[in-house]
């Protein structure tokens, strides 16, 4: 422990990470536990009477299948939002928050390059996102049998989680990148929140308007569950877009961070 900026970042965030894991598990497994109420003839009839547009906006078109249900509720909504909030907060803390607290100065006065500090911390952040995903996966696997959410293979779960990790890491990269570039925690959080809001609109609301269906392709929410990885496995195109944006944001933010003054 406490060997380098990576382990230190994880160690410092251990309590908060535990809290987030708890939230992800409780909400994720909690939603999964409601599956039997959806998976009933009465509910199917009710859903059949809903306007198609509304179901689409809520991403509920497939809700009566196990993968459709998990995609629409857990992976595409509650946990997605939890993890993006986690990603934005942690990304903002990684450089800008530490800098504004005046505590970044000390580490950078040691024989470590800014590049190393920044990248190791972002690496730690990605690891923490993977850990949260593992917590969710384990709890869903545990509860799926008892509630009858069957038919999803481990490979399909893995594909879904790959998408979710990159989705959360993308929001982390937005706030990390803006924070590293400008040293402002508020700007970092604002940028992450703006991307989340616009992404949500572009995925669920704007496509309702004729001629604006294409906006969906620009939404991180679409890259997350649009291709339904829980049924169709890895969606390489979506993953590559997210990965490419993450790399771009991290490179730009870190590049600027290496060249600017560090505030006291």
């Amino acid at each position: 422990m406490l060997r380098d900026p990576l382990t230190k970042w994880l160690w410092d965030g251990r309590r908060s990470l535990l809290g987030w894991a708890l939230a992800v598990v409780v909400l994720g497994a909690g939603y999964a536990a409601f599956w039997p109420t959806i998976d009933s003839p009465a509910m199917r009839d009710a859903l059949a009477n809903y306007p198609e547009a509304l179901l689409e906006a809520l991403n509920y078109t497939d809700i009566a299948t196990p993968d459709g249900y998990l995609s629409a509720t857990v992976y595409g909504l509650v946990v997605a939002i939890l993890l993006l909030v986690y990603g934005i907060g942690a990304g903002a803390r990684t450089i800008a928050g530490d800098e504004e607290a005046g505590t970044l100065d000390l580490v950078l006065a040691h024989p470590v390059s800014r590049l190393r500090v920044a990248l190791q911390r972002f690496g730690a952040l990605v690891i923490s996102i993977v850990l949260l995903n593992l917590a969710l996966l384990v709890s869903l696997l545990a509860i799926s049998g008892p509630v009858g959410l069957d038919g999803i293979t481990l490979g399909e779960y893995a594909a879904m989680h790959t998408h979710l990790v990159l989705f959360a890491a993308l929001f982390a990269a937005v706030s990390y990148g803006v924070g590293a570039a400008f040293g402002s925690r508020a700007a970092a959080i604002a940028a992450g929140a703006a991307v989340a809001f616009l992404g949500y609109l572009a995925n669920g609301v704007l496509p309702q308007v004729d001629g604006l269906e294409w906006t969906r392709n620009l939404s991180p929410f679409h890259w997350l569950t649009g291709g339904n990885p829980l049924r169709n496995g890895i969606q390489a195109g979506d993953l590559l877009i997210m990965l490419g944006l993450i790399v771009l944001l991290v490179v730009l933010g870190t590049w600027r961070f290496e060249r600017r003054d560090v505030a006291v």
Partner: peptide, 8 residues
């Protein structure tokens, strides 16, 4: 040693 030694 910074003038304003701040740590977590």
């Amino acid at each position: 040693l910074a003038g304003d030694f701040l740590v977590d």
